[in-house]
Design a protein around this nucleic acid. Structure first.
Lengths: 190, 190
DNA sequence: CTGTCCATGTAAGGCGTTACATGATTGT
DNA sequence: ACAATCATGTAACGCCTTACATGGACAG
């Protein structure tokens, strides 16, 4: 139930409507935890039931009501508790790697296509990470707690270096397929 | 529906029972596509309905029947088609990164705990990858198609280098938290 | 005057997990 | 004697996605 806690995390910064939460997700944790609208609304309702948030309803004549959610003390405690508790090991699914794994079924050309497409995708993502980073550098932030900012930025940094390493792997794999040099490099480097 | 195609992939190597497929998954693609038993059986039934596999029932008096699945021509075509088709971008969820992102709520000690635990986890995984690799090196394989083997091994290589880069990130993050040096390193290295 | 943004949700379905059920055979 | 392995599945539940519904405001 990480979505629940991610929402509590944002609400620990400030009060949000469901709509604004969606935007907060998209602007920050989207690359490792995409959230979709309907799910946010449902989860917010659950958090409310559990007493972890409270809502203020702002009525606007002729338009849909707006609901602003605020974290409660219980919610803050729950968040802290979750943040400091080890997570059960969580497994990732990478459909792309299934394609690679069974790549023996494909022709060289088809494999190279696969790898090139992925490389392009990764390079684009890399550019996004860099752009986001540049933006945070040029915008003087009003956030004062540099440690909290640092924690948040660490996730961007990880996204960046992971993409870097993926790109390196792809380039090297492409080269090896091209030269029919079927060697695997694991271990014993510095 | 990658599970479907992963199963077809294994069946393109050889005929398997559901039980043996489970073992095949565990021994090979488990680190990027864990599969569980009941799901394999359900998927196998679907593949059968769709005509991508055919089953041979082996009756054994006093014991449960065994069902051996074989890929059909249609299945092979479907597999090839899927392997060579670009996948829609797929998103990963990393609960651990949510913990890091909202790490500002935690004390230094709690953050360091979080990071150290993860580092230990990664180091263990790294050791597993190395051990698996060593095993493939020492076991003279009977597989003749080195290109197919290469493709399969590439996924192990990626797991390895990704874990390496994660470990580096964690070590550096730990050091920065310890020295209260809240700098982020993105871009402009060689 | 068409489309996008604001702002809320409901409904249905898919993929995957956990727990449960059965029962003989082989290893310690 | 007891546990693990072999071998098959069913049931129920949970998270997430997709599609749909509503309706004013504002921009090109």
């Amino acid at each position: 139930m990480s979505l629940k806690h991610a929402i509590l995390g944002f609400l620990s910064f400030d009060a949000f409507s469901g709509y604004d939460l969606k935007k907060a997700f998209d602007n920050s944790v989207q690359h490792f935890w995409p959230a979709n609208q309907s799910q946010i609304y449902r989860t917010l309702a659950e958090l409310d039931e559990q007493g972890f948030v409270e809502k203020e309803i702002i009525e606007r004549e002729e338009r849909l009501d707006m609901k602003i959610y605020r974290i409660t003390e219980a919610g803050r405690a729950e968040l802290h508790q979750w943040l400091s508790t080890p997570l059960p090991e969580h497994d990732t699914r990478e459909p792309f790697l299934i394609q690679v794994y069974f790549g023996g079924e494909l022709s060289d050309e088809e494999i190279l296509n696969l790898l090139h497409r992925k490389l392009k995708e990764i390079e684009e993502r890399l550019a996004v990470y860099e752009a986001v980073y540049q933006m945070t550098q040029s915008t003087p932030s009003k956030v004062t707690d540099t440690r909290a900012t640092f924690c948040a930025m660490l996730t961007l940094e990880l996204g960046y270096i992971n993409s870097k390493s993926d790109a390196g792997w792809l380039r090297s794999a492409i080269e090896r397929v091209e030269t029919k040099n079927y060697n695997i490099q694991i271990g014993n480097q510095s």
